[in-house]
Design a protein around this nucleic acid. Structure first.
Lengths: 240, 240
DNA sequence: TCTGATGTAGAACAGTGTTCATTGACGAAC
DNA sequence: GTTCGTCAATGAACACTGTTCTACATCAGA
């Protein structure tokens, strides 16, 4: 929700529009169109031709406003991150607030199809992303964590939420790469599981349904819990 | 190193060779060739045509032995995971052994280019992958962790190592998508950092160089430390 | 009015995963 | 020894992809 008036990163190099109402196309309109395509048809279907079609123009017209597809997707990601709502900080409750931020990030990412895939391996450098990063850094520093820990943990938390949301967006992708209904994938997995020799995989077989039954929410919360407990352990050790 | 004689997953459906020495091509030869291409030129350059060229055959010939590119990459990944060396288990030292396993996984993945990208969002279902998973499940169960925790943590650890190795393989990818020398990317980032308004990003700016200076090893070890501390906290709570 | 920058359009390039009909090679049965 | 059917490889083709290049409008300022 921010549309914050921040300086663009130098590598964006937005072209100055000729006049306020002059150009039929704009970088923002392209980003918005690309996001619509991502929402409806997923990242894989989001080609430059498809985005241009959504806008009723030629694919080459996009390249006047955007350097390449990679940059366009980065812009879309930053636009999506802008939807994240940040509550007022309360350092006394830093653990609960950190969890709430992670949940909000996951919610926003998951509400836009595969877009989380873009986060993996991207330097978090868009204006909106920086706002979220600053909020988190502030919370952890105000909570009394050492600077080095804050810097490293920010990275780690971003990696976790991004990777998790991405994995989640794939759903139950068939191991063969075809589009199979999830129940058939589960059936195949079950068949394979049953075929495993008991003497070589006793522990994995003993875990049995526990490996499959945890829903995505439960798995996400577990990871969050582990991360926060680990961080708290570091904090306690540093404070002693 | 395993070449374990395990049943193939049902979705592999390997074709039975006509005779032992008959076919000039084989699934294993294709996987090996694909791995060579990944090692030398990276995942993005690994096309079916490139793999076929490596073998001196036509691209369409591959499709007799492999269902599609997705499956081929899964096979390559499993082949790579087979290189992981597993020491004898010592549940007394489960924390150190768990860390050692994670380091070994990262080492093997990172020694094969981008291959870690394939791990993200893939159901860990190859034979060699299952051997590693079983080892880990065994270690944690023998260490006395509750089954539910073992199942969930296995997922989490795989997600972390895979995502980290993937991010690492990208190196310092330019935010624009072009191939820029890393120092130039760093220069751009520094320029952007310097342009940020002090009043809106005080904490992120205060962290300063701490955000950049941690090498990949240090960052990986930090994440590992957080995960293990979190797990230990769960174990202590469950044991009380 | 002329000039130059700002945009858009269309064609083209080199490449992608995958399918399909065709052709060859070989083991087994007659 | 010949036929037959399966196994395997081929080459062409399809429908795409990201990107670039040239050409062509459109409009602001001198």
């Amino acid at each position: 929700m921010s549309t914050s008036e921040l300086p663009d990163p130098p590598w964006i190099q937005a072209r100055k529009p000729r006049s306020a109402r002059g150009a039929p196309l704009s970088r923002d309109a392209i980003v918005e169109a690309a996001l619509r395509v991502v929402d409806r048809e997923g990242l894989e279907a989001t080609s430059m031709r498809r985005v241009a079609e959504e806008l009723g123009t030629a694919p080459s017209a996009l390249y006047w406003h955007v350097r390449n597809k990679h940059q366009l997707l980065q812009l879309v990601l930053d636009r999506v991150v802008g939807e994240i709502e940040l509550p007022p900080r309360d350092p006394e409750n830093w653990q609960a607030q950190l969890k709430a931020l992670a949940r909000e990030m996951r919610r926003v990412l998951s509400s836009h199809g595969d877009i989380a895939r873009v986060t993996i391996g991207a330097i978090p450098a868009g204006p909106n992303i920086l706002v979220v990063v600053e909020w988190m850094h502030a919370l952890l520093r105000e909570a009394g964590l050492p600077d080095r820990t804050v810097a490293l943990f920010g990275d780690l938390a971003g990696l976790y939420v991004g990777a998790y949301a991405f994995e989640e967006s794939l759903g139950l992708a068939s191991p063969t790469g075809e589009d199979l209904p999830p129940e058939e994938v589960l059936a195949m997995l079950g068949e394979y599981w049953a075929s495993l020799p008991q003497d070589r995989f006793p522990h994995t077989l003993a875990l049995g349904d526990l490996l499959f039954e945890g829903g995505p929410d439960e798995r996400f919360e577990f990871g969050l819990d582990v991360l926060i407990r680990g961080l708290e352990s570091l904090r306690a050790e540093a404070a002693s």
